[in-house]
């Protein structure tokens, strides 16, 4: 464990806590893409299939449980909670995310570390996570004004993978035979997708203005 990876995990955790706060405090999920939440639930379920078979550390197991449970809770809340689900922007959240799932699955079958069930699921989860934010970014562009908590949620979610890239660079130079090139390339793509969001987020912070993405 290094400081970059720990900071990345904490940033990821903060993003989930901010989203839970937004939904709990406002009893609303307006501006949140349910499709992105469903993709993230799939990412965690596919990536953490080894949670019961391979023990890495208490920290690792606890964080996996927290990520899976919180994301499933958010999806359930957006689908089932009679107050929250009324505020879901159903007509704006129209990204065809099934294509993202299909493309990630095909790519995982073609490019993986080993042709085993677990490794292909892992590669699938890495590719899917890289594009999982797309429905959310499209929704933000369509919904005009973005409320603070939603903006912070997306910001922390984007920042965490950027910190992971620093972690991979650090591990590359400090650990012999360390190679996580699938995660690294995918992580670069994932972080790049946030580039324009980061730009407008910085502008809104600098000008102390409301975050607004151009349509």
């Amino acid at each position: 464990m290094n400081i970059f990876r720990f900071a990345g995990d904490m940033t990821h955790l903060i993003s989930i806590l901010v989203l839970l706060l937004k939904i709990y405090a406002t009893k609303s999920c307006s501006g949140i893409s349910r499709k992105t939440q469903e993709l993230y639930a799939l990412v965690f379920l596919a990536r953490y299939v080894d949670i019961f078979t391979e023990f890495i550390s208490v920290y690792n197991t606890i964080m996996k449980i927290v990520f899976i449970a919180s994301t499933l809770a958010i999806v359930w809340c957006m689908r089932g909670h009679r107050v929250v689900r009324r505020s879901y922007d159903k007509e704006l959240d129209t990204f065809r995310h099934y294509f993202l799932i299909a493309a990630s699955l095909v790519l995982a079958l073609l490019v993986h570390e080993k042709f085993t069930f677990q490794e292909i699921l892992w590669a699938f989860s890495i590719y899917l996570e890289a594009v999982a934010i797309l429905p959310q970014l499209v929704l933000l562009q369509r919904s005009g004004n973005v409320d603070n908590l939603t903006g912070q949620y997306v910001f922390f979610l984007g920042a965490y993978r950027g910190l992971y890239i620093l972690n991979w660079i650090y591990r590359y130079f400090t650990e012999p035979h360390f190679s996580r090139w699938i995660a690294c390339v995918s992580g670069l793509v994932q972080t790049a997708l946030y580039a324009d969001f980061f730009y407008y987020y910085f502008l809104s912070w600098k000008n102390n203005a409301k975050l607004k993405l151009p349509a």
Binding site: E54, I56, N60, Y164
Partner: peptide
Amino acid sequence: TRKEGSKDEL
């Protein structure tokens, strides 16, 4: 040590 290629990251 863990088996090679084990995924120790989240």
